[in-house]
């Protein structure tokens, strides 16, 4: 299986503050990567650079064979292939759940409305909220909203899914329902990069673990090795606090 994402020596600054330092990473198709690390370590910035919600200043980011830079004309096309789930759900409150799911397929992919609705219902079924399709986001619980957001991203039939702390804004009892949907998605073979503190989820689905601190990738290892014998002291300290 070929690599689908490649980062080479990526550097990123917010004014004077360097958020990413010399980050290199390769992601293969169908690979699941979980990124963890303390807050402010650059995990979110890293995945937001992959669909250019943040701009990097140095280095190369290549997604599905296309380099992302300020010269990229059709960044929208790349974004359409990269789904993202946000910490704060970011559903569109003025649209019903179904419309949230069909809007981008209809307007960006030029899909006929009927087909878009079929795909939307299929994906809502998949995250088990098909019965809420006609409701508005404000009428749903946090867990339901986050699963709707996942369905919305899946409706674009992306090649890659990015998760930016998808369960951090949820009540403990709703975390499981969202993680379950993500596990299903992983089993279906989606390429996933997940920023999360849910180590149980990481152990279950991740192929590789990445630990970041102060904008650097401190450690990258197979999931089992990462938890059983982490190499760096910083990772050991972090794991001892979080587990």
């Amino acid at each position: 299986m070929g690599k689908i994402i490649e980062l080479k020596n990526v550097n990123k600054w917010f004014d004077k503050f360097q958020a990413l330092k010399d980050v290199s990473l390769e992601v293969n198709q169908q690979e699941k990567i979980v990124i963890c690390g303390p807050s402010g370590s650059g995990k979110s910035t890293l995945i937001r650079c992959i669909n250019r919600l943040e701009e990097h200043q140095e280095g190369q980011i290549i997604v599905d064979g296309k380099e992302i830079s300020e010269n990229t004309k059709d960044i929208e096309k790349i974004r359409a292939e990269v789904g993202m789930v946000f910490q704060q759900f970011n559903l569109f409150p003025h649209l019903s759940i179904l419309d949230n799911c069909t809007l981008a397929p209809i307007w960006v992919k030029k899909m006929p409305k009927k087909q878009a609705e079929e795909i939307a219902m299929k994906n809502l079924e998949r995250v088990q909220i098909a019965d809420q399709a006609k409701k508005f986001p404000g009428q749903l619980s946090g867990g339901q909203q986050q699963r709707s957001a996942l369905a919305r991203a899946l409706c674009m039939e992306p090649k890659i899914m990015l998760f930016d702390e998808p369960t951090s804004a949820l009540d403990p009892e709703m975390i499981k329902e969202v993680l379950d949907s993500m596990v299903d998605l992983a089993k279906a073979g989606m390429t996933m990069i997940v920023v999360t503190h849910e180590m149980g989820f990481a152990k279950e689905v991740a192929d590789n673990m990445i630990f970041m601190d102060e904008g650097r990738i401190v450690e990258k290892a197979k999931t089992k090795d990462f938890f059983d014998n982490p190499k760096s002291d910083r990772t050991k300290l972090f794991l001892s606090q979080i587990l």
Binding site: R79, G83, F86, A104, A153, M156
Partner: peptide, 11 residues
């Protein structure tokens, strides 16, 4: 987040 969600869907 509304802008980001729209962008992330390729709009």
């Amino acid at each position: 987040g509304q802008y980001e969600a729209a962008k992330s869907l390729g709009m």
